[in-house]
Computed example of a mutant assay.
Amino acid sequence: MIDSRPYPIGRLHTPWNDAEKAAWRASTRIQRSYQSEVVNAIRALADRFELLQYGALSYDPERYPLLALKSPGWHQDKPTVLISGGVHGYESSGVHGALTFARERVQDYQDRFNLIIAPCISPWGYETINRWNPNAVDPNRSFYPNSPAQESAALMRLIESLQVELLAHIDLHETTDTDELEFRPALAARDGVEYVPGIIPDGFYLVGDSDKPEPEFQAAMIAAVRQVTHIAPADDQGNIIGSPLQQPGVINYPTKKLGLCAGLSDAPFVTTTEVYPDSPSATAEQCNQAQVAAVCAALDYLNATEE
Rank of each mutant, 00 (worst) to 15 (best):
V250Q: 08
Y144S: 06
V38Q: 10
A224H: 03
H230L: 06
V137A: 07
I83K: 00
R25N: 12
A154I: 02
I199N: 03
R226L: 07
A19Y: 03
A298R: 01
D179W: 07
L181T: 14
Y276W: 14
N146P: 00
H96N: 10
I159N: 01
T176S: 12
H169W: 10
H88W: 09
P213N: 11
D111T: 12
L67C: 09
Q107W: 05
A304M: 12
P197H: 09
N146W: 00
A282R: 00
A102F: 14
D209H: 09
S161R: 12
W16P: 03
E182A: 08
H96C: 01
P233M: 04
E50P: 02
D179G: 04
Q218D: 08
K212M: 13
M156C: 08
D209N: 15
T273M: 04
I241A: 09
Q76N: 12
P6M: 05
S93D: 05
F269V: 11
A232T: 10
Y195W: 13
R226N: 12
N114K: 08
G198Q: 07
Q110S: 13
A19P: 00
Y144H: 14
D138A: 11
T273L: 06
I200H: 03
L52K: 04
N146Y: 10
S4V: 11
Q110M: 13
G208I: 04
A22S: 14
A46R: 14
L187E: 14
A56T: 13
T229R: 07
Y109D: 07
L82I: 07
T128I: 04
F217S: 03
T80H: 11
A22L: 08
A154G: 08
L264T: 03
P248H: 01
E174W: 00
I83D: 02
D177L: 13
R63G: 08
Y144I: 01
Y109W: 15
L162R: 09
N252V: 11
V295Y: 10
